[in-house]
Design a binder for these strands. Structure first.
Length: 151
DNA sequence: GCCAACGTTGGC
DNA sequence: GCCAACGTTGGC
């Protein structure tokens, strides 16, 4: 099993929103960055991911989701009315992909970015790299368990 | 709201 | 293929 981190602005879609979806499952759409897209396509059913809240009062990790459907074309790219519309992505030649994620659990508290930064075991974490803007990224098994120990 | 960092676009 | 201009991300 591999580990990942997925960013979302909670004002747009939070971990609580995911918990309220039917079967606590939703597609993870709107990724429009090639590196992030490639990571989405590497995800396998049963992989786990942290749900990270970005661009909000207390940015940090809010809980855990699992991958329940592997990469398939992101249909929001085909919709001219969608904010993530991309005319260069077509059903015949889809450029962007998404996965389906299921809510596993929300943490009792947000493990804040500030706290992650202060934890030496996480010094090399991709999320904390200078200037990092990726919204989908891998997490190592060591980082995963270190973060769980902070909970 | 500011702005640093980064990715993408497009002229050449 | 270079690189300036532009748009976006996301912490603060």
């Amino acid at each position: 099993m591999n580990y990942w981190l997925l960013k979302s602005e909670p004002e747009a879609f939070s971990i609580a929103d995911l918990a309220r979806r039917p079967r606590r499952t939703e597609h993870w759409d709107g990724v429009r960055n090639y590196q992030a897209r490639n990571y989405l396509r590497e995800m396998r059913r049963g992989d786990h991911a942290f749900f990270y809240h970005s661009n909000c009062a207390v940015p940090g990790i809010a809980g855990i989701v699992s991958i329940v459907r592997e990469g398939y074309p992101d249909f929001t790219a085909f919709d001219p009315d969608d904010p993530h519309y991309d005319p260069k992505s077509t059903p015949d030649r889809p450029r962007w992909f998404m996965v389906d994620v299921r809510h596993e659990r929300a943490f009792e508290r947000i493990i804040s970015l500030q706290e992650l930064k202060s934890f030496p075991a996480l010094a090399g974490m991709r999320l904390l790299a200078r200037g990092n803007r990726l919204s989908v990224m891998p997490v190592t098994a060591a980082e995963w368990s270190a973060i769980l120990s902070l909970e």
